[in-house]
């Protein structure tokens, strides 16, 4: 893997009012890798995600996206960065008044000047890439099951071939088999399209597709390395997570 940085977070501090969420947080993300972020509830995973996708300003510190500082940007500069990222939120967040196909076409047409025909074919392609059936194109989000919504949201996040893909708990609410399929789909797309993925997850088996794992605890990132080194982490939450019953399954799976 080329050690080429796509995101670099330096000494980040973030807070909601007086409540400090992150302190001195550092994180590097390399091009073409899948980075999983794990951490207990309330450890600030989603806050970090919101900062990285420019929805929330950090209090202090800086981060570079694709080599450019993401601080004090003009509206236009922000838009250029936003064109490079695709986000899939936890609740899928599809526009409910548009069909799945129209959701994707809307994203494409809003960002690039592309003719209708290509945009539509592209939307169809993305739907197929996310392992959905053709008929989903004209269905509305309210007519989809939970798993299909997640896949449709992935298709929309991939709409303009983002350089960086952010996934907020992509497999929460899916059954283990669909979750595994979903993970495989993500892995396949990353390998083929060379995108970088930052994935917040609670699902240990999702870590199997991750190249590196970052653990957020005590307001900062306490570990960021390949999954097989996780046992070296000295943190009670992490130990409980990986050495308990749940963790054994993951460690066994990782060896295989």
């Amino acid at each position: 893997m080329a050690k080429d940085l796509i995101i670099q977070v330096k000494n980040l501090q973030s807070a909601y009012g007086e409540r400090i969420i992150h302190e001195n947080l550092n994180l590097d993300v390399y091009r073409g890798e899948i980075l999983a972020i794990i951490g207990g509830s309330g450890s600030g995973k989603t806050t970090l995600l919101k900062e990285l996708i420019l929805l929330k300003e950090p209090k202090k510190g800086d981060y570079l996206i694709d080599g450019k500082s993401a601080k004090n940007l003009s509206f236009k500069q922000k838009q250029t960065i936003k064109n490079k990222i695709g986000v899939m939120f936890q609740s899928a967040a599809l526009f409910s008044s548009l069909s799945v196909g129209e959701n994707i076409v809307y994203v494409i047409k809003k960002r690039y000047n592309i003719d209708d025909e290509t945009a539509k074919n592209m939307a169809m392609l993305k739907i197929k890439l996310a392992d959905l059936d053709e008929s989903v194109y004209w269905l509305y989000p309210s007519e989809l099951s939970g798993g299909m919504k997640k896949k449709a949201a992935l298709a929309r996040a991939l709409a303009v071939d983002p350089k960086i893909l952010f996934l907020d708990e992509p497999v929460s609410g899916l059954d283990p088999i669909s979750a595994d399929e979903f993970d495989k789909t993500i892995k396949k797309l990353v390998d083929l399209l060379g995108i970088s993925v930052i994935m917040i997850t609670h699902d240990l088996s999702s870590l199997l597709i991750a190249d590196r794992v970052a653990i957020i605890a005590d307001k900062t990132i306490i570990f960021c390395d390949t999954p097989d080194k996780i046992h070296t982490v000295n943190n009670s939450w992490v130990k409980e997570l990986f050495m308990g019953e749940r963790g054994k399954r993951f460690l066994d799976g990782n060896k295989a």
Binding site: N121, A123, M124, L125, K128, E134, W138, L192
Partner: peptide
């Protein structure tokens, strides 16, 4: 290699939009 794999991916997944 890269272009070929992308083209292969597209040919595998290309589909007609169902008409309404």
């Amino acid at each position: 290699e890269r272009v070929e794999s992308v083209i292969k991916l597209i040919l595998q997944n290309k589909a007609q939009i169902p008409s309404v």
